[in-house]
Computed example of a mutant assay.
Amino acid sequence: MKSARFLWLAAAVAIPALSRSAHGQQAEAIVTADRIYTADDFRPVVEAILIRGDRIAFAGSLREVRAKASRSATTLNFPGRTIVPGMVDAHAHLLGLGQALLQVQLQGASTYDEAIARIAARAATTRKGEWVTGRGWDQNLWAGKEFPTESALSRSVPDHPVYVQRVDGHAGLANATAMKIAGVTASTRDPEGGLIVRDAKGNPTGVFVDNAQSLIGRVIPSTSRAQRREAVVGAIAEANKWGLTGIHDAGESRPVIEIYEELARANRYNIRNFVMVSGDSADVIYYTNRGPRSDMYNGRLWVRSIKLYADGALGSRGAAMLEPYSDDPKNKG
């Protein structure tokens, strides 16, 4: 059996160039493929669709579509392809994706050694003393499923401060250089809502859970607004590439939301984003006073909900439990 080749289509996102013809009229395109799924129970599969401007105007047989299209309509044929509606990710972090694309990618590392090798490779191309950051490691994929310790990482990358977050973002691993810069020692107390993982002697192992991540994060140089803006642009392109035409952005700050609006006004925001305001008091007050906003910038942005935080996540052992974790009997999160 041949593997299916898919195209994801949402006209308002995928084909913005069709919005106007050379004469200022709404341009049209007839799109055909082997299969076009509509997600419409009354007509789940069709032969063709008609795109008019930035909207899907009709879906049906090729004969029906041609009858409704103008003579100037462009025809786009995708033989051997299947077209499905654009997908929506119900829990995403758009800026986080963009920043991750610029960092060390640790997703899928099947061993701690493999994760270290990826970090060391990035460090080899980074000026001595500069930070190396990344995300995506998951100790549940490794033998023993235990949190890593900094010792092996520090031996492999001694000349750069390193901080790499776990796949869920609720924990991170620092090397010895990063902890030295942050001033983290055995005497450093766990912050409220956070945990510094320690060895039997009370020394930090390098793993910081939930609010404890701020102990390292506060000394990592912040990115500029221009860098964050370009990270968002890159994230949108990456999302579109994999068929994501809409997301629910689970917690963003006012400065980031303002970047979203700026890009949307400039017609550089090819995604539909239902944004949740992160539970920072000043931002919540600002957006509460502003009031809920829906369907802004031709259906690109919604800002009408707030994300609040209660505890951590299961994978990083920070979620609050009634009983201890089976592999960490002293920890209830």
Rank of each mutant, 00 (worst) to 15 (best):
L173Y: 04
Q99V: 13
I285Q: 15
R43M: 12
V275P: 04
P161W: 03
A266G: 01
Q99S: 06
H160R: 09
A69P: 01
I30T: 09
G183C: 03
A178F: 00
V233S: 11
A57F: 11
A39T: 12
G144T: 11
E150D: 12
M321K: 15
A250G: 13
G315L: 13
D138L: 04
V167L: 06
G333H: 10
L153K: 07
L314E: 13
Q213A: 07
L18Y: 04
Y269M: 14
G129P: 09
D34V: 05
M179K: 08
D210R: 07
A33M: 05
T126R: 11
F6Y: 03
L301M: 04
V256K: 00
A100M: 04
W137E: 08
E28V: 12
L95W: 08
N331Y: 06
F58C: 03
A120P: 02
G206H: 06
A124V: 07
G172S: 08
P204A: 08
I220P: 09
A120S: 12
A100F: 03
V167H: 07
G206S: 13
A212M: 07
Y37E: 12
S154A: 09
G169C: 00
A11R: 06
P161D: 06
P221Q: 07
M276Y: 13
R268M: 11
K2G: 05
Y260A: 02
S281K: 13
A264H: 02
I247G: 05
I36A: 04
A171L: 11
I119T: 08
A73F: 01
A200F: 03
A174T: 13
D89F: 05
E261F: 01
N140G: 12
D138T: 08
G144H: 07
V233F: 00
I247E: 07
R55N: 10
L195D: 10
F208I: 02
E47T: 09
E28A: 02
V207N: 03
R254H: 11
R52I: 06
P204G: 01
R71P: 06
M87S: 10
S316K: 05
A12D: 15
L244T: 10
E130R: 15
P292H: 12
A109H: 00
Y163D: 03
E192T: 13
G53T: 12
L7Y: 03
A69R: 01
R135M: 02
R71S: 11
A29Y: 02
I247V: 14
A73Q: 08
G169D: 08
